[in-house]
């Protein structure tokens, strides 16, 4: 007579045929789990080797400039300068930290200072998250400092993406694109200087600090264009190792595919 097996969960003994079929099911599930893990981990896009030295305090010495964005201009070698953009904690720019420093030291614009903080760097660009100036006081020197020149290179039209440099050059993987868009909006909204990045067919990138057409800081006005492919028009300037792009906000064009749900 055929054995009529019936599985009852709270009875300890599982009938034999049921047990065997259960074993096969579990083996199949095992294969599915392994396959899923392999596919979703192995085929991720490669991450960049950007760095945020979260636990290491470094010191940067150079001239402080507030424009276009708070930065320290270091002299690495005679006539070779590197501009290190300053950042605040979290998704904020350095304005509050600069204010704290200037409360104690008076104006530091154009002065030589030594600031401590956490380094952020990638692909030739370096930034510094300013450390708490109560814990790591900033020192100021009176010295003869080289003038900086910003060279104008004319009007350009260029396609790329607006990113926030703290995440892009630092710890976010990925620090660009749709996945990161919300965070970039938060950072730029909090005062972190927006940066325009392009890439050519060899995969080589260029970076441009973004200001408005007059050269002033720009944050909330470009939030809706952040993290997406855009075409922008503006005046190109060069400051040592950085480019500056003075954008006309009205001329920013989103490069979209056929994306609107409601066509107008």
């Amino acid at each position: 007579m055929k054995k009529d097996e019936f599985y009852i969960g709270y009875i300890d003994n599982v009938p034999p045929k049921t047990k065997k079929k259960l074993k096969i099911t579990v083996y199949i599930l095992l294969i599915v789990v392994i396959l899923f893990a392999i596919v979703f981990s192995l085929f991720q896009n490669k991450f960049k080797n950007s760095t945020f030295e979260l636990t290491n305090i470094s010191e940067i010495t150079g001239t402080y400039h507030n424009n276009p964005y708070p930065s320290i201009r270091m002299e690495l070698q005679p006539n070779e300068y590197k501009n290190v953009l300053l950042l605040g904690f979290g998704k904020f720019g350095a304005e509050k930290d600069i204010k704290n420093i200037e409360n104690r030291l008076m104006s530091i614009e154009g002065q030589e200072v030594s600031i401590k903080g956490n380094l952020v760097y990638y692909n030739g660009k370096t930034l510094l998250q300013v450390a708490d100036s109560d814990e790591f006081p900033v020192s100021k020197k009176e010295s003869q400092l080289p003038e900086r020149t910003i060279n104008s290179l004319g009007e350009i039209e260029i396609e790329g993406e607006i990113i926030d440099p703290k995440c892009y050059f630092g710890v976010m993987k990925p620090g660009f694109g749709k996945i990161h868009r919300s965070c970039a909006v938060r950072c730029i909204s909090g005062g972190i200087p927006p940066v325009f990045t392009t890439v050519n067919k060899e995969g080589i990138s260029e970076y441009f600090m973004i200001t408005d057409a007059k050269g002033n800081k720009i944050n909330h006005d470009i939030l809706e264009y952040v993290g997406q492919p855009v075409k922008v028009k503006g005046e190109l300037e060069q400051l040592d190792n950085w480019f500056i792009l003075k954008l006309n906000i009205e001329d920013i064009k989103l490069l979209k595919g056929n994306s609107k749900i409601y066509s107008n």
Partner: peptide
Amino acid sequence: FHMLGDVNPIYSVFTSNLDYSSL
């Protein structure tokens, strides 16, 4: 993606990207 910023993180979840009319 939303914390340590200038607005409440849950508010940021809903408002950091306002393209609700796009697919």
